[in-house]
Amino acid sequence: METKKIFCDITKCVGCRACELACAVEHSATRDLFLAILESPRPKKRIDTQFIEKDVFQSIGCQHCDDPPCVEACMASCIHKDKKTGKVDIDTKRCVACWMCIMACPFAAISRKAATENKALKCDLCPERECPACVDSCPTRALYHEARKDWAKREKNKVLIKK
């Protein structure tokens, strides 16, 4: 099975950051926007909306790499790539906050959690949801949760339609 991860169609992303908020809320204790902003520590997003150039944006998080540098770098051996799903997960309980994974990630997709609990943090593809919160939240439907071959197919079709 090929890794399903989150793809962003840059042509549709308007940089609204809705995915960031949905992500933070999904990873909060209360799962409610109005209550999540009152939590301490405040929940942290794992996806980032980035400015590429004028009027071009993207939302990007963990790429769940085929050959993940973070897995190799983790000296506590708490990051693993699931053989079946291809998902790269951090066993937060074992994380010692050495930031070796941050050191190695080519996409800056791993961040440090709030000071009270020093742990590495990244996209976990919302294990409790059928579809990750960011994908569901995207008002322009720019985000997709799928395997690379499906994404490529979609892109190819788009080009065909354009022609």
Binding site: C8, V56, I60, C65, F107, W151, A152
Partner: peptide, 15 residues
């Protein structure tokens, strides 16, 4: 060289 770079770049290239 990493395939993930092309994943992130594919729609940008199409613009």
């Amino acid at each position: 060289t990493r395939p993930e770079y092309q994943d992130a770049n594919s729609t940008y290239t199409s613009i």
